[in-house]
């Protein structure tokens, strides 16, 4: 067997929890694989659904979004809205035929350096197993990239985004923040727009 693949991983971490957890992992000198590159955002709620897709189109083999634990977002519901965006991303990846495991959204509180390390180590490991983007999917890099670019474009489109607004709205109304409910709401609200995406 050849040496294990060294994947490229892009992270979006919220300033208040996961980014702080990553810092505290450093302070505690907990070691993890050097594959992650981090973009700091104030809250995972800032995550535009197009960002992860663009990340994959720009050479990432895996995307990690890290926020505060549910109920602990510094801005109250940001991470719930992030789950809505994340569902769309997963939905689109599935459509394109990219393993959903390449996109992970998870939580670590400011005090949880070791937990962050655990999450990121496991994720890196998993993405390494999947190999370079396209390998597990059986597609050429060019093909995958152009499909991802299309998906990103769609994620910026008014149609899809209105679907997301409706999903977010219903989530807030029902106050049901489970991942499965959110993902079925996104499926439902964006079904039509997603259908148009080949």
């Amino acid at each position: 067997m050849s040496a294990e693949y060294n994947p490229h991983i892009l992270g979006f971490l919220c300033n208040w929890c996961c980014y702080t957890a990553a810092d505290s992992a450093g302070v505690g000198r907990y070691q993890y694989p050097p594959n992650l590159r981090v973009i700091r955002i104030m809250c995972t709620g800032r995550l535009d659904p197009s960002f992860p897709l663009e990340g994959l189109a720009n050479g990432a083999d895996g995307i990690f979004v890290g926020g505060c634990h549910p109920g602990e977002c510094h801005y109250q519901d940001g991470n719930y809205h992030a789950l809505v965006s994340a569902s769309l991303v997963h939905e689109m990846l599935e459509k394109i035929g990219i393993s959903k495991e390449r996109f992970l959204i998870d939580w670590a509180s400011a005090a949880e350096g070791p937990n962050f390390v655990k999450i990121i180590t496991a994720f890196t490991q998993r993405v390494a197993e999947l190999g370079p983007l396209g390998k597990a999917e059986g597609k050429s890099p060019e093909e995958i990239r152009s499909q991802l670019a299309q998906a990103a474009e769609a994620a910026r489109s008014r149609k899809i985004r209105i679907g997301l607004i409706n999903a977010s709205r219903e989530m807030m109304k029902k106050r049901d923040f489970s991942r499965t409910t959110i993902s079925s709401m996104v499926q439902e609200k964006c079904a039509k727009a997603l259908g148009e995406l080949v």
């Binding site: 800032r46 535009d48 659904p49 992030a82 209105i162 607004i165």
Partner: peptide
């Protein structure tokens, strides 16, 4: 405004 960015991520027209 506290700068969380939820509005930006949800705006249909960016």
């Amino acid at each position: 405004c506290k700068g969380c960015g939820v509005c930006a991520a949800r705006c249909p027209t960016l």
